[in-house]
């Protein structure tokens, strides 16, 4: 699925958790290549290993077999060279820091100069449409604004890769549509490589260049769908025949994975 040079490459990835009820195959023989500038969504029922896969890329989990490289390095080296920004399901902003302070957090840890910190905070606040909110505390903002701030935090140190784990899962439909639109615009403007975990079919189809369909027990990839949709995607593209066809293929893929399971 590469049009461009590969950024993330997984080959025969296995991950088995030891639990009290015996071993759980979170990932089994997962191979995937993500090219530069791709927007790849991972979709599947809970337990299919989509979040685990993302955490392996981020070196938050260690695979028990196979190999994975990020920017040609092991995930842990990539983590240490700060190659990616990670967005979690909840905003997870520190309540004792202002929005600007939260965005500054990774910059402080990575040792940017004070002047550079100020400049970058200002830039990313603009990028996520939060100018003027830098001095507010997280608990003074709505859920959608908090999640935007957490995306700004992941963007602030300008890594080429953005790993997003159901970032809009806890938000309501209207806010979600709005943020999807903004995320797409941001991706186009910055040309970042994005890996995006979701359990919403419309969201996956609307955002992605590639949709990876996964199924559980053991967690594995059942289908990779390349989206034929154009780069420019207004929200009402979701009512077009082309969109619905892709959505249909994703749904079929999910169902196939399900029947295999029974």
């Amino acid at each position: 699925m590469t049009r461009t040079s590969p950024v993330i490459e997984a080959e025969g990835l296995d991950l088995t958790f030891q639990t009290n009820d015996g071993p759980v195959h979170a990932l089994k023989d997962v191979s995937l290549t993500i090219g530069k500038g791709d927007f790849v969504s991972f979709i599947g029922p809970s337990g299919c290993g989509k979040t685990t896969f993302l955490r392996v890329m981020a070196a938050l989990e260690q695979p028990t077999g196979g190999s994975v490289t990020v920017n040609g390095m092991t995930p842990d080296e990539a983590r240490r060279s700060r190659a990616y920004g990670y967005v979690f399901q909840a905003a997870g902003l520190y309540p004792w820091r202002t929005i600007a302070g939260n965005i500054r957090l990774p910059l402080e840890i990575m040792g940017f100069s004070r002047k550079e910190q100020d400049r970058r905070v200002k830039d990313v606040l603009q990028l996520v449409d939060l100018e003027g909110f830098g001095g507010k505390y997280p608990w003074q903002l709505s859920g959608g604004m908090q999640q935007r701030a957490s995306i700004a935090r992941a963007l602030s140190f300008d890594a080429d890769i953005l790993l997003m784990d159901e970032p809009f899962g806890a938000l309501d439909e209207i806010v979600r549509d709005h943020l999807n639109e903004q995320l797409l615009a941001l991706w186009k403007r910055t040309g970042k490589t994005i890996a995006f975990v979701t359990h919403s079919i419309p969201e996956a189809v609307y955002l992605s260049t590639h949709i990876v369909v996964m199924s559980p027990r053991p967690g594995r990839i059942t289908d990779v769908i390349e989206s034929p949709l154009p780069q420019d995607r207004p929200l009402d593209i979701r009512d077009t025949a082309g969109f619905l066809e892709v959505a249909h293929r994703v749904r079929e893929g999910l169902r196939a994975g399900q029947s295999h399971d029974d």
């Binding site: 938050l60 983590r79 957090l105």
Partner: peptide, 14 residues
């Protein structure tokens, strides 16, 4: 601290 907050610190290689 929540697992998520600690993971965040780890993604920054703090």
């Amino acid at each position: 601290t929540s697992q998520m907050q600690r993971d965040l610190m780890q993604t920054y290689a703090a």
